[in-house]
Nucleic acid binder design. Structure first.
Lengths: 301, 301
DNA sequence: CTGTTAGCGCCTTCAT
DNA sequence: ATGAAGGCGCTAACAG
């Protein structure tokens, strides 16, 4: 030991990993199609949870991204090179091709903020459908009848979008309200599309906007204000996530709080449990949400 | 090859790394003391640049964090285990202990948004001092004479804080203005400290606030608005970074745009150059900034 | 308790 | 062209 210190010796992790057959490393996999998921503000909080918990448990974190990887095979292949003991799939697309490959090879993995029908696949998520439904019920209780739903292009390939939209639609159905398809907007150019929504005759114009996530909601609020509409007097705005910017915007954004950091922490715990074979794969963990009411919400005029 | 495909064979990266003596992996090192750097909104954009460029160049990314690692030695040791060919130190503290260790072991590294006196250490950064100085000159030109400077506790250990503060002070000196030390605030409890700043008699009260970064500036703007002050009529607010929230806030935040993504990309390029011994260590790269004027700025009343 | 050795999976060299 | 073998740095099993 003294000699090791004197010679400034540090063991080589490659050689250790080779013989020990595990690496104490957790892989983080981003399967974004168009817009990098890790660019969203909620992502940092989930990452924070992952890193904190991983560090606590003496695990390193290897990041894989599928950025512009035209060759899907090469991409998948690198997941199977045994450099990490297991993988966390961060907000995976519904149609991602990593899941079948990982299953086939028996590599432990967990979906972070993703869903799967397969009972053998572990997921850590919130009840997007239920929480979005409760939020819309709250809007309806306040008197809103025309509620726009805004999401980005491509987001329909993710379970969080599918499920929140389903909750929005179900809430309408449960109250016997029709869901005007003209109020569901896939956003390309926010400024223009907001202008055109608000340019509708008063009888068709939305009195509230539900942004798929807080980023969308905050951008929408900004666009409305630049167009001269007041929030919440003229139109209410709500989102989902409760990112830090939701509390500091003016007015504050009404939203559904997700325990983002805890989602990340929980993923690491579940994954390490699977790696250690302490828990069986197929955990379906649903973390609680909370409605956070702030100034962006008021009854319609 | 056919057999390999048929048997679903994938090479083991550990064994490859062992014999090839390199791993095609770039390490990302977070040396935060108190507040995780990777929790800041500007970080995601730098990370985005790192990941995009790394993926482009067929590199994986390994994240090391120093979260609550009481045992500094173990922490440093894991940097030297040859799992990555080189390291990017993300917004390192001025007094971090990784730099000497890496130097001694001859492991290539680059400081991302950090500075070092040592001519042999590569850095990628903006001219924080110059840009902050130019911003403050602009405020003075508009007529502001009492400009508060707000930063978080602990941030004085980072070069970005030291340099922006130096620019703020130098701009005052260059215009023959005194720099009221009472207007430099280390923020513990923003709401209270903003209230107490604005509670000063009108002759001492700031007419503008410079937040060390956009996060601080936006939070300050929110606090001011909640206290009933109007931005920019009663007080102007400016920041640094130009994170996405700076454009969508109401009013828009005046700020210094940093090419955050490009900083990340550039770091990867410099680091890989050093690893390949194509460029010598000691690159001091300064990327350009740009003053972005938005609604949060007006002449004092 | 200390010392030796086989082999983790792969690549490179050298021999056929 | 194909094949055999040595060794990358380490650990674990076993021998002394």
């Amino acid at each position: 030991m003294q000699a090791a210190r004197r010679l400034n010796y540090h063991p080589n992790a490659m050689a250790q990993g080779l013989v020990r057959r595990h690496t104490n490393t957790v892989g983080l996999l981003f399967l974004h199609s168009h817009r990098p998921v890790h660019t969203s503000p909620s992502f940092v909080l989930m990452l924070d949870g992952v890193l904190e918990k991983a560090t606590q448990l003496r695990q390193d974190t290897l990041m894989y991204t599928s950025y512009s990887w035209s060759d899907g095979r090469r991409h998948i292949s690198s997941l199977l090179d045994r450099r990490c003991d297991g993988l966390i799939l961060v907000v995976p697309r519904l149609d991602n091709e990593a899941v079948p490959a990982l299953r086939e090879h028996g590599i432990p993995f967990v979906l972070l903020a993703g869903q799967s029908e397969d009972p053998a696949i572990s997921t850590v998520d919130t009840d997007n459908r239920g929480a979005a439904g409760a939020l819309v019920h709250h809007l309806i209780d306040l008197g809103h009848r025309r509620i726009a739903f805004l999401h980005g292009r491509g987001e329909e390939n993710y379970s969080y979008c599918r499920d929140r939209l389903a909750g929005y639609q179900r809430a309408h159905a449960e109250r016997g309200l029709a869901c005007d398809p003209g109020l569901r907007v896939m956003v390309d150019s926010l400024e223009e599309q907001v202008a055109s929504l608000m340019g509708l005759p008063a009888s068709q114009r939305p009195t509230a906007v539900f942004g798929l996530d807080d980023g969308m909601a905050l951008r929408t609020m900004g666009a409305l204000q630049r167009l001269g509409w007041r929030v919440p007097e003229d139109v209410s705005v709500v989102g989902y996530d409760d990112i830090p910017g939701a509390a500091t915007s003016w007015p504050g954004l009404t939203t559904v709080r997700q325990p983002l950091k805890q989602i990340g922490e929980c993923c690491v715990e579940v994954l390490l449990g699977q790696i250690a074979k302490e828990v069986a794969p197929g955990q379906k963990i649903i973390l609680p949400t909370e409605l956070v009411v702030r100034g962006s919400l008021a009854p319609p005029r």
